[in-house]
Write a protein that binds this DNA or RNA. Structure first.
Lengths: 201, 201, 201, 201
DNA sequence: TATGAATGAGCATTCATTCAT
DNA sequence: AATGAATGAATGCTCATTCAT
């Protein structure tokens, strides 16, 4: 009996979850390719295998759907930092690990990456970055701060250090995804090492 | 007669040119702020002081208008390279001059810069970069090639060198324009010097 | 057994009845405030404390629900006539009693009254009035007929007499409910007496 | 030349005016029959012989269109008062003239009348009546005030006098338009005279 | 050449109704 | 019997583009 009811609940829950997940996945993939304005809700629904109305059961409006996708992808990106940061290791070692992992993550998840580019190049992203709840840079800021205190990282404003580290990998990832370069592991390492030269003292 | 006809032509051309310029300027400023899809042609016309129909006299459609603006801004960016590149100077010196000048240019021309960001983060930009006519990186490629041959620049693919040099300044310029950092000349120099550490051998 | 089954039936019926009543009450109140089109079934269900689907167990569709509410409120209005009509009394006395009672009823039941106004100013009401089953004016018609025969009421078509008697009280009730006048008992009497001047010979 | 330009302007203006008028007329007729919510903009456009977008050139949204129609019809109604009020005549005479004229106006303009009923039985109308700009009852208020001072009209609140005079004719007009009575001039006069009995001292 | 009124395809969103549980 | 997730037709409104003047 218990088993049965659990199965039932699981089935129900997974169905629900499936719809929501399917909508988010479909939206993310389409927006990655076509942009926010190039992606009508009708197309999202079709790709997700639902009716249009179903989108509005899970998300108040298109904006909320987009925010939800951002939140989710953002979580994935944050995890990568957490998983690759080891306080025992020296700053340089950590830097290489973290930014290599991020770059490989970007490459391995083209839709997620493109979606985030769209997001941060839109009113959504700017508003989000300005908002108080924007805490996502916190861990990286901490990491760089530590490096600055140990005098292994240049004494520059956080935003500048972020530019020197993220700028190159985001830029090159875009080229990779658009087929202008092919990034293999060796090349990823080379880039990250080069960007380390930029931030290191 | 000749004088007269020249005057007439000038008058006509300048009128024409004025309208066309006004439309492009208005469109650029509005798109920089609101994005492609947030900027209706009616608004462009109003800001430019023309009728909507006039836009279509000078440009086949909205896309062509956007391409024309890109072309123009791109020319400005290219000139900055030309004006700051001095074959007599050593590679490092040239690098610092060119990328500092570019960064200052970005900062001094927020609309142009934001427009280009919009452009390269849209189907327009990707298509453009893929197209054969896209020759704009040629001069910089030449510069880096020379540096590689002189063994002062790392032996990495062009796209990677471009990422290491452009990534940081584009990234940090965005933050500056959005008010997250304030870039003064000293900071600009510091960033460019740091990025030189990334590309130099 | 009988007792048990009766209890059971009562329980079931009262449950059923409760749901149905709750739905009708919720719908009436919401429609009174927001109109037919401003009141989604989902809102009715929420206010009634049921699921949306439950509405469709008791009513074929939204229209049938509205008709049912009309029927119910209409019954209340008819009762007021029955309760205040006394064949022993003279016509004038009856008129004053009936229409004063109706006016006080309207005022005391704002939701019911507003609902009926919505109803009679909509395709529903016109169709209903045209339909054969519309018998609700019968008793009043009889009352006026009698007055005409006794030559105390003007010899005008029924519809005109209805206008002269109902028009003012409906009109003034609307103003009262919208806060444009305040009707106390004295004023109600004054209005009804005035309208009696209109219908009396 | 002058003639030509005048003709041109007239033609242009009348065309413009035609579209706006056609839209308002179509909307009024459809709303009179189907109500606000039963009348989609697409239907209005079709009946008016325009595209949907054209509606939005002349009116910010559907609400503004409805307000504009109300304003126009209201003007017609007000004029009828002005045209039939003669300060030289005694109050009773004026009353009969004004309310007979209004009733005949209602009957002669079924769409306008039905539209106004819809309007005043909707959030639009209530808001309008509450708004400061609502001055339309002013002239009638003045008329009744004068009658009260001359002691020929009952000493009742304005709203009550309005109910006693307007209530019957609005009520009976509705019945006439719905085919439940047929009002000829004699009957109209009889009704207005009866309602005079209600308001007169 | 310049204009802007007119157009209608296209979009985000709502809501009555159904149906699997 | 009761539920509410799912549906998609229908709606108000926008905007790139055309064309008569």
């Amino acid at each position: 009996m218990i088993v049965h009811s659990e199965e039932l609940r699981d089935q129900v829950m997974s169905k629900t979850s499936d719809k929501k997940t399917a909508i988010m996945q479909a939206a993310m993939e389409l927006i990655a390719e076509q942009g926010f304005h190039g992606t009508p809700t009708s197309q999202i629904a079709k790709k997700a295998g639902t009716g249009v109305g179903t989108i509005y059961r899970y998300f108040k409006d298109k904006d909320e759907l987009i925010e939800a996708i951002h939140e989710k992808v953002h979580g994935i990106f944050l995890n990568t930092f957490a998983e690759n940061y080891d306080p025992q290791l020296p700053v340089r070692k950590n830097y290489l690990r973290i930014f290599s992992a991020l770059t490989r993550l970007f490459i391995a998840n083209p839709c997620e990456t493109r979606f985030m580019e769209q997001y941060y190049n839109s009113p959504y992203g700017i508003a989000k970055k300005r908002s108080e709840e924007y805490q996502c840079e916190k861990p990286l800021f901490g990491f760089f701060e530590q490096g600055k205190q140990q005098q292994v990282i240049k004494d520059l404003p956080m935003e500048v250090l972020m530019s020197l580290s993220f700028g190159p990998i985001i830029f090159v990832t875009r080229d990779h995804l658009n087929g202008f370069v092919h990034l293999n592991d060796a090349l990823v390492s080379a880039i990250v090492e080069a960007s380390w030269d930029a931030v290191k003292r």
